[in-house]
Amino acid sequence: MKKTYRVAGHKFAVVMPDNDAAWNEMGPYEPFVCVDASDCLFTAELLDAMPDTSDKQKVTVSCEGPDMPRIELYEWRGQWLMEMAPLLEAPVRAYLLTDKTFYEAKFRILGSIRFSLGTSLMLMFAFATARKNTLLMHSSVTVKDGKGYLFLGKSGTGKSTHSQLWINNIEGCSLLNDDNPVLRVMEDGEVHVFGSPWSGKTPCYQNIEVPVGAIVNLRQAKKNTIRRMSLVEAYAAMYVSFSGYRFIKEMADGLHATNEKVVGTVPCYALDCLPDAEAAWLCYKTVSQ
């Protein structure tokens, strides 16, 4: 069976056997189902066995911390092979094999279906859209008065907590996505944020699109202060908040072009904060002006 999904206006197809248990884990993707299957950016097909890739060549390993997924990248017969584990020290639980244009992917699930599916599709989405004015972000996004406010920061900084503080203290706020929203520079130059089927530990899979009001980079501190970031600061804060293999020139160029447009268009702030209501109010009053 093949199903097509549309996330941030980009279509992709997932192909798996009709009765495969993995379909039961596609709940988060349901709001994104798309009837028109034409013009897909990529197709990801589930395999029940991997080809023999023992002659693969290691390219790099990436992992952002002990509790973060580890991704090993190999080159195998002119294709990219990614072997993924849920944690730095965990065994490999998923395989993703894709051509170098990120158009046709095959993946194999060993452990948790949700981890394998989610990681494979997120990687494919990020790579296939990298040259299309699109960034798959690591961020928590709250909507207020029809605008999206993106909270950035290292893992454990309190992005989700800050979203909750807005929602609990400021009337009319709602969560758009808690972990992996998508930013896109639209044809008219406006920057929009979209919900996605990936939202970390918070089940919040909304097929919603709003213009971006502001981007806020969070840092834990002993008191609440906020200031506007310079262009270079904003670029750097954004740079570490979306993924992609920068050593692939076309990908790095695409990501740079999008990031440059985003920080040149959207007001970006640095918020040093406590996890309290005052932080949410200070932030909201400053960035919604």
Partner: peptide
């Protein structure tokens, strides 16, 4: 990389 009127040197390679 050029960013508006500014320049940044970014570690991009393997």
């Amino acid at each position: 990389r050029q960013l508006g009127k500014e320049y940044i040197l970014v570690a991009e390679g393997l």
